Computed example of a mutant assay.
Amino acid sequence: MRINPDVEPKTHKFITTGKITNKFGIDFKSASQILLMRRALSNVKIAGLHIHIGSQITESAPYVAAITKMAQFIKKLRKKGIKLEYLNIGGGLGIIYGRENPQTAEAFAKKILPLLKGLNLKIILEPGRFIIGNAGILVTKVLYIKSTPKKKFVIVDAGMNDLIRPALYDAYHNILPLRPPAGVRRIQEKVDVVGPICESGDFFAKERRLPKVKEGQYLAVMGAGAYGFSMSSNYNSRPRAEEVLVIKDKYFVIRRRESREELVRNEKIAPFLLGI
């Protein structure tokens, strides 16, 4: 059963999930009522409680507040004869995208373990972004450079359909040339890095100082391992990119690029449009 502990996680409002104004979970009072009537639900077994207060959380204080509330709630339930097996404390541990200074796993453990001791429950943690976020990059090719009286645009072949976080959350991703061209490595310029999709929200960086790049050069958009491919789409009729696993000097295509045919394979023409 997911509980809403009503805790401010200090993250982007779109990925806040543990405040009472969010759509997720059940408040403590309602949860207590449901658990007390569980004996009448012969086909339902409530084995544990779950919280998930948000994502990209870089400090331990919100977790301490949420787990403290949960520990108090569990102790009250036990006094009423309600026994549980699990406590899932969710995920959301933040990583470094730019200038963040997130807690380490060790620092996080030192803060929360004292709160969990004595509960005698199996503890579940969901550190997905923490594990995979900085293990993935989006590689994209510079198609051309466009200069206007106000801006300089580096237009690349990847788009918001491949990595929507900058457009959706105004998220920062570090961008690096894979191989800086000889002779201009130290030259930097302020640019917008944008994709080819037909809206102005299609960008990876705005007003960013980057090493000068040329058409045909490849860029690495860092920190794309979490919420990258999983949030990608076929918007603008764009096939999703392939995924390549790289370990030292070895690589393997673990997901091939989609084809144009696959974009329409599930579509059907209504018979009445064909005059049938």
Rank of each mutant, 00 (worst) to 15 (best):
E126Q: 12
H50E: 08
I124N: 13
N43P: 07
I112E: 05
S147C: 02
G92I: 12
I137R: 09
E126M: 06
G91Q: 09
Y144E: 15
K75V: 07
I131W: 00
S60H: 12
S147Y: 07
I82L: 10
P149L: 01
A47H: 09
T140L: 03
Y86D: 15
K75G: 04
I89L: 03
L115Y: 08
S60Q: 15
L87P: 09
I57A: 08
G91L: 07
V64M: 07
R99F: 06
I123H: 02
L121E: 14
A135Q: 13
Y97V: 12
I131M: 11
Q56M: 09
L115Q: 03
I46G: 15
K69Y: 14
A47K: 14
K83H: 10
Y86I: 09
Q56C: 07
K79G: 05
P114R: 11
L84Q: 12
L93W: 01
K141R: 10
I57C: 06
K117G: 04
I46N: 09
K69P: 05
L119G: 01
P127S: 11
G128F: 00
I137V: 08
G92R: 02
K146G: 04
E106L: 14
R99E: 14
A135F: 02
T148R: 03
Q72V: 05
I96L: 08
Y63D: 15
N101E: 14
F130P: 06
L87T: 04
K146E: 15
K75F: 10
L143Q: 01
G118M: 06
N134I: 01
G92H: 05
F130D: 13
Q72N: 13
A109M: 07
K111A: 11
G81E: 04
K76M: 12
A105I: 11
A71T: 12
I82A: 03
H50C: 00
I74A: 13
K79D: 13
Y86S: 15
I51F: 10
L113C: 04
L93R: 01
H50S: 05
T68Y: 06
A109I: 11
G90N: 01
S60P: 11
G92D: 08
T68V: 03
L77M: 13
I67V: 11
